[in-house]
Design a binder for these strands. Structure first.
Lengths: 198, 198
DNA sequence: TGACAAAACGGAGCAGCGCTCCGGATAGTA
DNA sequence: TACTATCCGGAGCGCTGCTCCGTTTTGTCA
């Protein structure tokens, strides 16, 4: 979908050609800077790389969350769409949940500081948080429900809590061999499974 | 005048009286400010509250991590000492691990932004991170080992990973009724338990 | 007690950041 | 070509972390 701020459809008012061009330029530059300096990189740095003024960035993306959202939109979307596909193709709903989680974690871990931003207790990234929830929560809920239905995991877990938990576990330096979020998330899912007895 | 300040034992030659006094004043002010504005509160604010200049704070606590560590030292210590006690008194090592985890989580959750700081990928809080690890990792390892020994949980989990996982799960606003780190940590420990059958 | 050096203090000052404001440039249209 | 709505750029403000240095306080020794 068109990258619009939350608020919905705007009339087919097309922007001026230079504005359109600058928007793309900024997105490209932001993606590069985020990859090297993390999503907290100074706006000035992104502006310099894009060869535009700061106001241009703020005009297109009023908050940092809007910019981050726009940069990663495609990947978030891909992650959302993968959910139903995995559910259809995997051996079991539990298996699908595992695979989807792996996908989600891979995405978060490879984006420097993205997981941190998502769970930050400041409100700077509220819009990003909202977008993630809006797109991925239903997917996670669907997978969870299917696994419950199949009797693989016990009912009662809230998708929101699980998603935030997974996101939280992804926080931190990604170059520490002593800490691999995947192992902990595997434990978490293990704990979710219905015990054989009782 | 044998009044020796708490904390590490330093050689007999100590600081001037006014320095000692200011150190305490700053610690008190910092504790108050941290409680209301979080551990990221501006140094100026703490200085103003303590009625001292900023340089005084930097002189006593070169980095923010040093200040935070000093403020929470007693509570961290208490948490560390509780480990062996719980192990001795609880019904089982697994039970002790649960109780200790609760203690740890309660501590983290009630300190605004402390968990965030602990896992921040910036190096600003490296000293704090190191202190936590130094004091609490052995305790966690002891509890974990005991539980493994008792056959309650399966071997192979690294204490470092578990501690970081617990810390990570505590990150975020603490006023969200939809997210309770305790529930997820319970799941994590559940996943750690040795399966009864097969 | 008074003098004096070491220790500690305080805040001005610099640099880096987010974000805004407004004079000037530009694109689309008549 | 002329005109206007749209868009642009960067100077500027306020807020931060952290340092530097002239001033004040403390402890000691004559």
């Amino acid at each position: 979908m068109a990258a619009e701020g939350p608020g919905g459809d705007s009339p087919p008012r097309s922007k001026r050609a230079d504005a359109q061009r600058n928007r793309e330029t900024v997105l490209t530059a932001a993606a590069e800077v985020f990859a090297t300096s993390g999503v907290d990189a100074p706006i000035r740095q992104i502006a310099a790389r894009a060869g535009v003024g700061m106001a241009t960035i703020y005009r297109h993306f009023p908050t940092r969350a809007d910019l981050v959202t726009a940069v990663y939109q495609h990947q978030i979307e891909a992650c959302a769409e993968a959910g139903p596909n995995l559910l259809a193709r995997a051996d079991s709903p539990l298996d699908a949940l595992h695979q989807w989680t792996d996908l989600f974690v891979d995405f978060l871990v490879t984006k420097h500081g993205l997981a941190d931003a998502l769970q930050s207790d400041s409100d700077r990234f509220a819009a990003l948080h909202a977008y993630f929830l809006d797109r991925l929560l239903p997917v996670c809920a669907q997978l969870l429900d299917a696994a419950v239905e199949a009797g693989d995991i016990r009912p009662g877990t809230q998708p929101y809590e699980l998603m935030r938990g997974i996101g939280n576990l992804c926080i931190g330096r990604d170059d520490d061999p002593r800490y691999d979020p995947r192992r902990l998330i595997a434990l978490l899912l293990q704990g979710l499974q219905r015990p054989q007895g009782t």
